[in-house]
């Protein structure tokens, strides 16, 4: 079957592989919206959107292990990476960072490369529950550690509360720093529970758990994730809403007819 025939088959019958089903879960599409989605996607756009949604490697957790890279590597290391609760066995160049292993070997491209030098936070993942930079972590040093990436935060199609809040509060624009921001936020929720301090904490000697973080505290603690689009205020709102369970209201409004009139007349 040609690529196009496979696609048409899916469109008509909704025949999905296990991987594709998982992708739909991640997209939050249930049975009827799946069909609608498949119909809505046009055949001409197949290669773009099919690539977006259906690369077989995207949900590597569904596959036991990817084939080994056939390339002969100098200083090869064998690593078992436990990522999003599934173990991948890889033969890697000793120089391979966790970031490149995720993106280039496991097709887990949700984790982003923004600078490759620990200066932006886009590559933030959770390692044993703590936020760390995958660009300055050698994959070889991750044996036996539990790694969670952006792809592993939603459960059975249900987004993590932080993911939902980012969506609702528009905590992103281009979306490139977003996985890092979200992983960082998820970790920060726990850091606040553990009572960890920051540079802007008033008194380091007052140790309490379950901190309620002020806006300044949130900003300082989220300063390791640069957002060049400048969505910081929305990121703070998204975090706050999950952290303190209070509704965060938009800080935009339309001028009223009265305001407009007054501004004119005076």
């Amino acid at each position: 079957m040609t690529e196009m025939e496979v696609w048409n088959n899916k469109r008509e019958l909704g025949n999905l592989s296990e991987d594709e089903r998982k992708i739909f879960d991640q997209l939050g599409l249930n049975e009827s919206s799946r069909r609608k989605f498949l119909k809505g996607i046009s055949a001409t756009s197949l290669s773009v959107w099919a690539a977006t949604y259906f690369p077989p490697e995207v949900f590597a957790s569904a596959a036991a292990a990817l084939p080994d890279n056939p390339i002969k590597l100098v200083n090869e290391v064998k690593v078992n990476l436990r990522i999003n609760e599934s173990v991948k066995s890889l033969n890697l160049d000793s120089r391979t960072t966790l970031l490149d292993a995720l993106r280039e070997r496991l097709a887990l491209t949700g984790t982003k490369k923004g600078c490759d030098h620990g200066q932006c936070g886009a590559c933030t993942v959770l390692v044993d529950g703590k936020r760390k930079l995958s660009c300055l972590t050698l994959a070889a040093s991750c044996e036996g550690k539990e790694i969670t990436t952006i792809e592993g935060l939603a459960e059975n199609g249900e987004l993590h509360a932080i993911q939902k809040a980012f969506l609702e509060h528009d905590g992103f624009q281009c979306g490139y720093c977003t996985p890092g921001q979200i992983c960082s936020s998820v970790a920060l929720l726990e850091e606040a529970k553990r009572g960890e301090a920051s540079y802007v904490t008033d008194d380091l000697r007052e140790i309490t758990k379950d901190l309620t973080l002020s806006e300044e505290e949130i900003r300082e603690r989220m300063s390791g994730n640069i957002c060049r689009c400048g969505a910081y205020n929305n990121i703070v709102q998204a975090f706050k809403e999950v952290h303190s369970s209070d509704d965060e209201m938009p800080t935009w409004e339309f001028a009223t007819p009265e305001q407009m009139e007054n501004a004119k007349s005076s």
């Binding site: 992708i23 991640q26 952006i150 792809e151 992103f172 977003t178």
Partner: peptide, 10 residues
């Protein structure tokens, strides 16, 4: 947005 918060946007 959902694609962006799940790391699915390519």
């Amino acid at each position: 947005g959902r694609l962006k918060v799940t790391g699915m946007a390519k």
